[in-house]
Every structure is written in C-alpha cells, then in structure tokens.
C-alpha cells in the first residue's frame, strides 16, 4: 500500500498540522511516511500545501507531480491541483469559498462542508480534523487507534486535553463527507 496525498489550502487552516498528524499516525502504525511542505513565501500568508506519503515500503521521491488523493480547501488550490489527481483517484474539497467546482470526469469527487459545520457548532479550531475524518472515511489508511497515538505524539503535552475534541471532529467529518461523483 502506498498513498500519495496533497493537502492544500490557506495558511492558518491547519493544512500542515493535518498532514503531520496523518504522518505521525502512520509511523505509529509502523508505516513509512514523508511530509514535504511548501515553505516559501506562502508561509507568510496565502496558500500552503503539503505532500504526505504513507506506505508499507521505503518511500522514494518525497516530491510528486501526481497524487492518489487531493484534499483541497480553497479556490487557488483547486485551480492548481485538480489536474494533479491520478486518473481514478480522489478529490476531496470543502465547498466554502469555492466558485469553480471540479470538472474532471475521470476521478472520484467528494465534498465536505467542514468550514460551515465547524463555525456552526463552534469548533473552528479543529476544522482540519473534520476534513481528516472525511478523508479517513474514504481511505482508512490508518486506524482510529493509531490516529489517537498520532495526535498524542504531534500535539505538545499541554494541549493533550484537546485530544477528545479532535477525535470528536474526526467523527463528525466521517459523517459530513458526501459523494459528488463516484466512478
């Protein structure tokens, strides 16, 4: 099993930390992982993206052109990454702020309105965990047990009281994700 993912959105949406939690969970489940961020001027506001690879085998290139799954959280990222999903792959997007929806016919498309839901129920800080939950529903590449361990490892000790809230957000995300186009 090798899963190659791009997660892209605005800086501050938790794109990088979502990737980190996924990667750490992979390590806990004894998988090989890589986490390659964009670290350019994007970090100072604007778009942020991270390539995460989780695999049973040694990972070759941490930099990729095509992905099994793209998780897209803003319009700029939709414009940039829709065409980088492998044929038959998955595109997951949050509809908030999206004006041009995905048009490809050869990929699976899912929508998760996590931003709206997070603000409605007052959980905006764990918006990214809702999105992660939606992704894990489609692709359970790591099990819940190891996601918890990943959270424990990636959150500093002083924030461990927030783990239940994160787990709750993951569960909400699993219910929130809806198919748009399934091959």
């Amino acid at each position: 099993m090798t899963e190659e993912i791009i997660i892209a959105g605005f800086g501050g949406q938790g794109v990088l930390s979502m990737g980190k939690i996924l990667a750490y969970s992979g390590i806990m489940q004894n998988k090989e992982v890589s986490w390659m961020p964009s670290y350019g001027p994007e970090m100072r506001g604007g778009t942020a993206n991270v390539t995460v690879i989780v695999s049973d085998e040694r990972i070759s290139s941490p930099v990729l052109n095509l992905f099994d799954t793209a998780i897209i959280l803003n319009q700029q990222s939709m414009d940039k990454f829709e065409n980088t999903v492998k044929k038959g792959g998955y595109l997951i997007y949050d509809g908030n702020g999206i004006t041009r929806h995905p048009v490809r016919k050869d990929i699976n498309i899912y929508r998760i309105d996590a931003a709206d839901e997070a603000s409605k129920i007052g959980l905006t800080k764990v918006f990214n965990m809702m999105v992660l939950g939606g992704y894990l529903k489609l692709k359970p590449i790591v099990s819940d047990e190891y996601i918890r361990k990943g959270l424990e490892k990636s959150l500093p000790m002083r924030h461990h009281s927030l783990i239940p809230e994160n787990e709750k957000a993951i569960e909400i995300g699993k219910k929130l994700i809806k198919p748009v186009q399934v091959l």
Binding site: K20, A23, I27, E32, V33, S34, W35, M36, P37, Y39, I59, P62, V63
Partner: peptide
C-alpha cells in the same frame, strides 16, 4: 531545502 524542510521517520 527539500531534505531540510521535509519530515520523515
């Protein structure tokens, strides 16, 4: 910058 910035096990 690739190896410096990326995270791995």
């Amino acid at each position: 910058g690739v190896i410096g910035q990326m995270m791995e096990k």
